[in-house]
């Protein structure tokens, strides 16, 4: 699916204060099967943007259009959450099967499908465990399996690896790439990590501070399939510096704007 974000805006109403303008006139296009990473200053509205794409809240104005041949059977999007959002009273397999359960797929069938996805993520041994018995890395593997089991056109990932340790993160990044190369889903991946963005993405979008819009649209030139070795490519350091500068400008501008708001 091609995702076309057309001039969307969103502000939050705050009691006894000006509304907080978070996203304003933001446009971007993500091609079918593309892997796009989004970076931007803290609190600039990345999760808000993702929520609009995931149908959690509608934009105040503008539209998000999904177009193209619909190949998957499930919802248009599935979100992979930073804090996993696994249901604590359910076993891992029943967590992964939830989308199918909501659609009324019979128990045997949905468990079989969920088990397939657990195998894809290499965690079938934990099918009967509760989420809180698992490490962060294992939980996020379950989070990805759940998103895949719902068979969406677009995967929306909100800093999915921010809460795990560095080694686990590297493993998860490689696993995600191999899953993506097999499933060919469109992916939108929010991160704070410039290196992570360069390792994973076809394109990196840099967002400005609030109200946020796209200030940089960078195509990542590294060939696929990729491994963690791309960091040795001389262009990697160059692109990293470039992205860092754009992000720094955006962050400084956001901090100045905030300071002015506070002192005003």
């Amino acid at each position: 699916m091609r995702v076309e974000i057309d001039q969307i805006s969103k502000s939050y109403r705050i009691p006894d204060a000006e509304p907080l303008r978070v996203v304003e006139g933001l446009s971007a296009t993500i091609e079918e099967g593309e892997f796009v990473c989004i970076i931007g200053p803290s609190g600039c509205g990345k999760s808000t943007l993702l929520g609009m794409l995931g149908g959690l809240h509608p934009p105040d104005s503008g539209a998000v259009r999904f177009s193209g041949r619909r190949t998957a059977s499930g919802e248009m999007t599935s979100i992979v959450w930073q804090d996993y959002a696994l249901i604590p009273w359910r076993s891992i397999v029943d967590n992964v099967a939830i989308a199918l359960e909501l659609r009324g797929v019979p128990k045997r069938e949905r468990r079989d499908i969920a088990m397939e996805h657990l195998k894809t993520m290499g965690i079938e041994a934990f099918a009967k465990s509760r989420p809180q018995q698992l490490s962060g890395g294992m939980r996020q593997r379950a989070g990805i399996a759940r998103a895949l089991a719902s068979d969406p056109e677009v995967l929306l990932m909100d800093e999915p690896f921010a809460a795990v340790d560095a080694q686990t993160r590297t493993l998860l990044q490689e696993e995600l790439l191999s899953v993506w190369e097999r499933h060919q889903k469109t992916v939108l991946f929010i991160t704070h990590g410039i290196e992570e963005a360069l390792l994973l993405a076809d394109r990196v979008l840099v967002l400005s501070g609030r109200p946020t819009r796209v200030v940089e649209d960078l195509t990542v030139p590294f060939a696929r399939p990729r491994t963690a070795d791309v960091v040795q490519d001389p262009r990697f350091a160059e692109l990293k510096t470039h992205l860092w500068e754009r992000l720094r400008d955006a962050t400084l501008a956001a901090e100045w704007a905030e300071a002015k708001e506070v002192s005003a």
Binding site: G54, E75, T77, S78, D83, I87, W89, L102, S150
Partner: peptide, 26 residues
């Protein structure tokens, strides 16, 4: 978070009540 997760997965209000809110309140 769980309510949002369920909504993103296509849950109806009734499904959210029975599968997320009430079990969570038990």
């Amino acid at each position: 978070r769980l309510v949002q997760m369920a909504r993103n997965m296509g849950a109806s209000r009734t499904q959210i009540l029975w599968k997320i809110v009430l079990p969570g309140a038990l």
